[in-house]
Amino acid sequence: MKHASLVLSIGLALMLTACGKTNPMLEQHPDYIGNWQSSTDTLKIEKNGQVTYKHNEHQDQKTPESEVSLTEHSDIKAAITQFDDNSFEIGQGELGKSFKVDHAPYKENGQWKMQVNGQVYTKK
């Protein structure tokens, strides 16, 4: 029993240590780390490389003959699998998402902004 507790304690200590480290892919790009918001998306990039992406878009289309309501929702939480100056990817395959960096993080009027996949995000 003591052996199992010791192994569990060591495992927890290693996990907590790993959570505090910056992902090697983000070490050269620390400005990306944080909570970002656009008009339809939220993008949370953690220093350990975990990314949470949420997309919510609602559109109403009315014509004389019909009324259509469209809702698009995505919710992805995955690790960064690729990162460079032009793009980054999270997850893999159909369970992943690619982000094209149109404009790397920059300061504008005292606020951090970046443009990804054609959308401007502001750091919160």
Results as ranks from 00 to 15, higher is better:
65 E>W: 07
56 N>P: 00
116 V>Q: 01
61 Q>Y: 03
40 T>P: 02
16 L>K: 04
77 K>Q: 14
118 G>S: 04
16 L>Q: 07
57 E>Y: 10
7 V>W: 03
1 M>I: 10
87 S>F: 06
37 Q>D: 11
48 N>P: 03
106 Y>F: 15
32 Y>F: 15
88 F>M: 01
48 N>Q: 07
114 M>G: 08
69 S>M: 12
13 A>G: 13
123 K>P: 05
6 L>N: 09
79 A>G: 13
3 H>C: 10
124 K>T: 15
64 P>K: 05
115 Q>H: 04
41 D>A: 05
13 A>F: 14
53 Y>A: 02
62 K>C: 08
33 I>L: 03
99 F>C: 05
50 Q>D: 10
69 S>L: 11
82 Q>S: 13
74 S>F: 06
22 T>K: 02
91 G>R: 01
94 E>F: 05
92 Q>A: 13
32 Y>G: 05
120 V>Y: 01
3 H>L: 15
94 E>C: 00
2 K>H: 08
26 L>Q: 02
56 N>R: 11
42 T>L: 02
72 E>N: 09
15 M>D: 11
111 Q>R: 14
65 E>N: 12
61 Q>G: 03
8 L>W: 10
80 I>E: 00
28 Q>H: 04
82 Q>V: 09
43 L>H: 01
41 D>P: 00
19 C>P: 05
74 S>D: 13
